[in-house]
Amino acid sequence: MSRKSSSIPFHLMMLPAMVLLAIFSIYPMFGVILAFEDFNPSKGIWGSPFVGLENFSYMFQIPEIQQILYNTVFIAVSKIIFTEAAALTFALLLHELRLRLLKRVIQTVVYLPHFISWVLLGGIVANIFSLDGIVNTALAAFGAPEAIMFLGSNPWFPGIVIGTHVWQEFGFGAVIYLAALTGIDPTLYEAAEIDGAGRLRRLTSVTLPGITTTIVLLVLLNLQNVLNAGQEQILNLYNPLVYQSGDIIDTYVYRAGLKELQFELATAVGLLKSVVSFFFITVSYFLASKFANYRIF
């Protein structure tokens, strides 16, 4: 049997997936021409008049576009940095634990929040940070003069958004690091121990070098998220008082696109975000292959 014929069944197995991909991912991509149209639902995507780049130029004339872009990038980048840092630290700490059962339990508990929707979390967070919530009660116990309206305060709001995101996601992020850590050859540790290396020395000389590629890879792949500040989360937490520090591209598009029926604008913004993300994915892929030797193709 030649190599070619033996691979045919495998290709056939891929066929349904490819068909689904074509129907649900590739065909709808034609819909992005909406971004260049003055969309009229009854005429449909193919019948609406073209307006060229008008939707894009309008987008950049939005008076507060700078503020919104700044908020988006600031929140998104902070989220990436702090989530990865927390996940890594947590994975390293957990890795040092000897009791397997305790390790499993902790790991499960910390990644649970990842599966809770922000519709629910939003209410919980709002409650915790409310004027008579846990945080303010604790602060008052330590003698804080006045309750702080955290979710209505521009200095605090981005911090809370980033902090609660980190809390929600770091446990899940740690799973990959933990997997990488178990991949390190145990004989290396034994050798290091015989050579007289202490715990800290083993961490810096064996553990960290062993997962450097994973760290670099995860950070690079996260570059695609620099414009994703978390629509679902912010939509459930923000309010007019913190538009200044919390209004991001996605929430603006939600208000303008869906509430005011400007679908073409929403698509234009979405397309722009996709293009930026695509750029970063490409860049990060090349960087990943260069620094972490990671290749898909």
Binding site: F24, N228, A266, K273, S274
Partner: peptide, 17 residues
């Protein structure tokens, strides 16, 4: 759902079908 691609696809999907 935080991914821009997902949003673009969703919009495109809804509108394209």
């Amino acid at each position: 759902w935080g991914n821009p691609l997902a949003w673009a696809l969703a919009f495109a999907l809804i509108l394209g079908l």
